[in-house]
Amino acid sequence: MAAVRRRTGLLFWCALGWITLVLVLAIIAGVLPIPSPTDMDIFARRKGPSLAHLLGTDSLGRDVLARLIYGARISLSVGLLAPVIGLSIGGALGLLAGYFRGRFETFVTGGVDVVLAFPPLILAMAVTAYLGQSIVNLTLVLGFLGIPAFTRVARAATLTFSAREFVTAARALGAGHARIILKELLPNVALPLGAFFLLGVAVTIVVEGALSFLGLGVPPPAPSWGVMIGEGRESLEMAPALAFLPAVVMFLTVLSFNLVGDTLRALTDPRQGAL
């Protein structure tokens, strides 16, 4: 543990602390002594911090702290679930493509290139237009868009490990394809995929924010950080904090996920090289 701490540094633990704090607040939001995030108080609009509203109120008189915390719920659940879709589907495709090669690999890499070439904003607009605006649809779209990246990471790692002798050794022992993929390749490919997953979370939170800001993401009145920045934009001159606060929270969260992801990758990489 001491060795790990020496190699990670204070910044890593700060980032981990921030992620934990946001996660815990989002989970226990329902039992926190904060006002409802959707209760409006038309007579107390854009108020500064007070005992009743610790971070003030927004342009409809809703409690900003409550909206930030409930917004964390939405931003984090979309930000975590969408990469899970990408990780499971993309990871599986990449593993199979890298292991079996041949026509299946050509098919997968071709499909990945097609998805990558498709403009993501158009896809998001098309889905919201046809299937309606909801958190589930948003998660599905973002998850789908994440598949190519995970496929590529998984395939590249699988190609490297498939060429190693321990895979040949498993074949020589008579192991079947399923056993080789699950027992020999997966534990090795899981590491780079895991590190990439955290970066995927960071990217997804930003994209969710951007889509919500454009009105393509989470439907109002549900708060997400992107929605809050979008709403705060309208009163930027009177109360800049309304856009600024969610932006800072999002910035810190994304930065933390990036830091943790990078550190974990750096921790696992050199040992891999030495093996």
Binding site: R164, E165, F166, E184, N188, Q272
Partner: peptide, 9 residues
């Protein structure tokens, strides 16, 4: 000898 053993098992 090292490459023929799975580093994660």
């Amino acid at each position: 000898p090292i490459a023929s053993l799975n580093p994660r098992r």
